[in-house]
Amino acid sequence: MTVLLSICVAVIFAVSVYLFTSRDLKSVAMGVFLFSHAAHLGIIAMSGQPLLTVSGETIRKAAPILGTSEAGLHVDPLPQALILTSIVISFAVTGFLLALLVAQHRRVQSMDVADLRDEDRPELPASIETVEMA
């Protein structure tokens, strides 16, 4: 199970790194989303098997509720709490990134990474302060 998950994590990381190398900003954004999914999956894989073998018998680990299961026989809740927090954060940031992509396309009129360099384009004002002076 852990091996399978690790392979999934590796494949998703590889795909996201491939997307990072793209010149298209939409693909880079997709790469970022996949990157965070791979990280979350990696943490789940790291949190251990949901199955437990006790004296030759394989059982499912219990829910981590105090008083209902013995110590060591329940699933570790902390990685799941970590992932939940992280998912919420990456959800918010993803929304921001997509909004930024739209706003940036309206301003810069390009979805290409090469057009993000400002040195080559002297017609762009250097900073916001000079924009106001003009």
């Binding site: 970022v32 990134l97 810069v108 993000l116």
Partner: peptide, 19 residues
């Protein structure tokens, strides 16, 4: 403020920090 120079640099900053 949304100036053009800002917009073109912000994307880089956000993506790098996300990674």
């Amino acid at each position: 403020g949304g100036g053009r120079a800002q917009m073109s640099q912000a994307y880089k900053y956000v993506v790098l920090n996300l990674v």
